[in-house]
């Protein structure tokens, strides 16, 4: 890394920002995107298999199978988080592990575990939504505005 940077001649009048930019390794965008695509896709395939299990084996309708499927995926994510595996996997997978429901479950489980030492109420209860909270707040807010737009279009 350092030797590669050294090869470029140093501009004696470079500003500090230019120096920092020169040494900041580029994020491997292509690799990250491909990994996110594959991992995110694999998680969804696993979810699909679980859903098919509920439909074929347990006799759920397609709509009814959604809730137990999400519950199983959340459980898997929480178990992997509890065993300290999910964060290592996420460092490799990037957005692929963050976007699906498993990523959401990880934010809650990780925060709950981290703050367990501060007690059940103020620790776990108070901090469980520390990372997941923004998703809920802005999810609800944006859902409201989308619904408002829909109402205006169809009823006004």
């Amino acid at each position: 890394m350092a030797t590669k940077a050294k090869a470029k001649p140093l501009d004696p009048n470079a500003t500090y920002k230019q120096l920092v930019d020169k040494h900041r390794p580029a994020r491997p965008m292509f690799k990250n995107t491909v990994r996110a695509f594959i991992v995110g896709g694999c998680i969804c395939v696993i979810g699909q298999l679980v859903q098919m299990f509920f439909i074929r084996v347990a006799g759920f309708s397609q709509t009814d199978a959604a809730n137990p499927t999400v519950a199983v995926m959340i459980l898997l994510s929480v178990i992997l988080t509890a065993f300290g595996v999910y964060d290592k996997f996420a460092q490799w997978a990037g957005a692929g592990s963050a976007v699906p429901v498993t990523g959401f479950a990880n934010t809650m489980a990780a925060a709950a575990m981290e703050h367990r030492s501060e007690g059940w109420v103020t620790g776990v209860g108070g901090n469980m939504f520390k990372l997941a909270g923004p998703v809920i707040v802005y999810g609800v807010v944006s859902a409201f505005f989308v619904a408002l737009v829909r109402y205006i279009i169809f009823h006004v």
Binding site: R24, P25, D87
Partner: peptide, 17 residues
């Protein structure tokens, strides 16, 4: 990690810096 960044088990990708 807890004081300055995220819960230890939170799956966020860290940059090379």
């Amino acid at each position: 990690e807890r004081h300055f960044r995220f819960p230890t088990e939170y799956g966020a990708q860290k940059p090379p810096t």
